[in-house]
Design a protein around this nucleic acid. Structure first.
Lengths: 238, 238
DNA sequence: CCGACGCGTCAGGGTTGCGTCAAGGACGTC
DNA sequence: GACGTCCTTGACGCAACCCTGACGCGTCGG
């Protein structure tokens, strides 16, 4: 798994690393960059808070032993305005320290020396958790002049009314809309909607493309949004 | 701080404890109840999944060494239909075990023997994190022209009278209302209401949707609020 | 000029999925 | 121990959907 999010390649995950020991920072930065994270680094609390404000990281890895201020203060400073996941790194094993940091708003607490694999796994967990609220929009809608497609609610709106689509029609529309502007080959469409063994049943496509156009296009016989590329495939255009 | 949420006293936080060692379960239950948590306990994976489905805990404390199934399988079973925070307890310190559990969807990993204070702090952190999606809804009541649903009071009002709903009816209504306007797939409904292993028993849905419509729709045979999307699922519309 | 090919359109038939009803059984209450 | 409520399960009719084949049209190449 190369992409840190594990899913479809989106905008890279941004990590803010805060530690005053250069060798730790270096190790973290190297490992994170190798896994396609975008990394900022700070060596003290002041610059950590500044960087967090200016760069809006998706997750913060924070060492508690900083030269200029108490690590817990950094947590509070962050929690004053953001819910970004905070993963605390600390050499102190005492239970009180952990409780204090966690109750101040940290999301996780790892003691030094730490295993890089474990740290990365905890980091993935923290990012994954924050994904729906932090990064993903709720309403993924695509609009054209004729109709509106809401991919989350699975709704199509047209001329003030909801359009009823059958499961197959919707599935086909979904694949096309997720590739707005791009050509999608017949084979790809067939295999995504009907299954891997249906790569050549092009007549299915003809029938269902016609139904989509009849339900959605202003002039179904002269489609403007569901474009045929003869011999190749279909394309959805806004 | 007595209240586990630390903030305004709301409905108590429900914890599901999963462990096959009675003394651990006892220690956890005592400590959690003393802090005003509501606690369910399971000794194996099967009953853990069932309890999670029926009781909808706000957080799960899960021991990986269970008699009937691999702990990671329990995590996957839960993640198939819920994002409830999972705090893993384990006697195994190996890095691989941790990574596997975390990547399967666990939120935190604590090795035995553990400090109770630390565990409780990690539990608070997990619950706090999940709060916005789990508990902080703005719309507590949803109104239609025919009836009113109060999600907090768990009451349905219609034509000046309270409507009696069975637990299952209410549960189903709740899932639909929380997704007002959005299509909810049959599988998701079944797994949320009946449990992870009921993803294909579509006849349950048919029976209970009919009952909901009979009790709430003005004209049950022509539903306006509980819409069927054939082959896909159901949708609640204001 | 003619045939081949790809695409759009239409209509019929098999199959699936949904709504409805009713009966059996588990559970808790009195 | 009797009663009532609720959940489960099966059967049946009906509507909707998916597949299939046939036909017409346009384009391209021989």
């Amino acid at each position: 798994m190369l992409s840190p999010t594990g899913g479809t390649p989106r905008t890279p995950t941004r990590v803010l690393v805060v530690d005053d020991e250069p060798q730790i920072v270096r190790a973290l930065v190297i490992n994170l960059k190798a896994r396609k994270y975008e990394v900022d680094a700070a060596a003290d609390g002041r610059s950590a808070l500044d960087l967090a404000a200016s760069r809006h990281p998706d997750v913060v890895v924070l060492d508690l032993g900083l030269p200029d201020m108490d690590g817990v203060e950094v947590i509070r400073g962050l929690r004053g305005w953001t819910r970004v996941p905070i993963l605390v790194l600390s050499a102190r094993h005492s239970s009180d320290e952990k409780v204090e940091a966690l109750d101040a708003g940290a999301d996780d607490y790892v003691t030094k020396p730490f295993g890089m694999d474990e740290l990365l796994a905890r980091l993935r967990a923290a990012v994954r958790r924050a994904e729906p609220t932090g990064g993903g929009e709720d309403d993924v809608t695509v609009e054209t002049d004729a109709f509106t497609v809401d991919l989350v609610a699975k709704k199509v709106h047209r001329a003030g009314r909801d359009v009823r689509l059958t499961p197959t029609e919707w599935h086909l529309l979904e694949v096309l809309v997720r590739n707005t502007g791009r050509l999608v080959s017949q084979k790809q469409l067939l295999q995504e909607v009907w299954g891997p063994s249906y790569g050549t049943e092009t007549n299915y496509l003809r029938v269902y493309m016609a139904q989509l156009r009849r339900k959605l296009e202003a002039d179904p016989s002269h489609p403007r949004h569901f474009v045929t590329e003869p011999g190749m495939g279909y394309r959805f255009e806004k």
